[in-house]
C-alpha cells in the first residue's frame, strides 16, 4: 500500500502532518534542533510572545504532580522586537509551519503584537492565548468571558494578515460558549485545552509549592478532560479544532483526532522525551497504513456513539 496522506487543513493553513509542538514546551524550536529534525514536524508553536520582554515569575516555577506538572513560569519571554531579531531568522529557514503564540494584558496589547507580526514572512499563523489576566478588568482572565474573548479575537484579526487560532482555557463553566463566541468573531480555528489551574502544598512548611501559589496543570493527568472538551467543542463549532492536553504517544493523539480534532499539539511530553513528536508522527503513519486509511483527515471526528 502507498504511503498514507498525513496532510491536514486548519482553515487556510495546510500542515504536512497533524502534529504540532505546543507553546511553552518547545521554546523557539532551536532548543530541540540537535535532537530532532524540526522539518519533520507538522509545525512549531513558539513560546508565548508579548509586546515587551517579560522576566516571568519568581522560582519555584514548576512542581511535579502525579502524571503531570504544575507550572507558573509567568509567560517569561523576550518580547516582540527581540523575537523578530534573534529568533525568527532561524525559524524562517525551516520547512515547517511556524505558529506564533501571542498574548497581552489588554485588548490593545493583543492588537499591537499581532500588528508587529503583520506581513512578516515565515510565520504561518497566529495562536492567541486568552488564558492570561486582563489588567483592565481587575486581572480577570480574558478567556473566561465570551464577549471579551470575541473582542480579543476581533482585535487580532483586524491587525493581522495570517490565520488566527484562538487557544481556549478549560477553566470555564462551558467551553463551547467561548468556542462559539470566537468562531462568530472570525477565528479560523481553536486549539484546546490550555492548562488547568491547580495548586500543590508542602505539608511540612504549609507553603504552596509554587512561588506564584497556583499554576497550570499539564501532562497525561489532564488528557481525559482535554479529550472530552475537544469532543464537545468539535460538535459545537464548524471551524477546525486542534487538540491539546497530555499527549504522550500516537494512541493519545488518535483519541483527539477521533473526538473531532483536525490536528494535535504535543506539549509536556517534549520535556519527558524530546523526540516524542516525531514518534507520534511515525505512529500515526503506521496506524493509517495498518488500518488501510489513505488520508489521515478521515479519522477526524470518526468517533462512534450509539
Amino acid at each position: 500500500m502507498s504511503e498514507p496522506d498525513l496532510k491536514v487543513r486548519i482553515g487556510p493553513l495546510e500542515l504536512k502532518n497533524p502534529v504540532l509542538t505546543a507553546s511553552g514546551t518547545f521554546g523557539y524550536g532551536q532548543e530541540f534542533s540537535e535532537l530532532i529534525d524540526l522539518n519533520e514536524l507538522g509545525g512549531i508553536v513558539v513560546k508565548g510572545l508579548s509586546l515587551k520582554p517579560r522576566a516571568g515569575n519568581p522560582p519555584p516555577r514548576i512542581v511535579e504532580t502525579p502524571c503531570g506538572m504544575l507550572n507558573a513560569i509567568g509567560l517569561a519571554n523576550i518580547g516582540l522586537e527581540n523575537f523578530l531579531k534573534e529568533k525568527l531568522p532561524r525559524l524562517q529557514r525551516l520547512n515547517t509551519a511556524v505558529i506564533v503564540n501571542i498574548y497581552g494584558h489588554s485588548i490593545d496589547e493583543y492588537g499591537a503584537v499581532a500588528a508587529g507580526l503583520k506581513g512578516v514572512e515565515g510565520i504561518s499563523a497566529i495562536e492567541v492565548n486568552i488564558s492570561c489576566p486582563n489588567v483592565d478588568k481587575g486581572g480577570m482572565t480574558f478567556g473566561t468571558d465570551p464577549d471579551i474573548s470575541a473582542q480579543v479575537t476581533e482585535k487580532v484579526l483586524e491587525n493581522t494578515d495570517k490565520p488566527v487560532i484562538v487557544k481556549l482555557s478549560p477553566n470555564v463553566t462551558d467551553i463551547t460558549v467561548i468556542a462559539k463566541a470566537v468562531e462568530k468573531a472570525g477565528a479560523h480555528a481553536v486549539s484546546l485545552i490550555n492548562t488547568l489551574t491547580g495548586m500543590a502544598i508542602d505539608i511540612e512548611t504549609r507553603v504552596p509549592k509554587l512561588a506564584n501559589i497556583s499554576g497550570g496543570l499539564s501532562g497525561p493527568a489532564i488528557r481525559p478532560v482535554a479529550v472530552y472538551m475537544v469532543c464537545q467543542v468539535a460538535r459545537s463549532v464548524k471551524i477546525p479544532v486542534i487538540g491539546v492536553g497530555g499527549i504522550m504517544d500516537y494512541r493519545n493523539a488518535l483519541e483527539f483526532l477521533m473526538a473531532g480534532a483536525s490536528a494535535v499539539q504535543v506539549g509536556t511530553a517534549n520535556f519527558v522525551d524530546p523526540r516524542v513528536s516525531i514518534k507520534v508522527i511515525e505512529g500515526l503513519r503506521k496506524f493509517c497504513k495498518d488500518q488501510g486509511i489513505t488520508k489521515i483527515e478521515e479519522i477526524t471526528g470518526s468517533l462512534k456513539v450509539e
Partner: peptide, 15 residues
Amino acid sequence: TMACGLGACQGCAVR
C-alpha cells in the same frame, strides 16, 4: 527543579 533541561520550559529560574 527542571522539566526539560534544554532551556525550553524556563522552569529552573534563579534570580
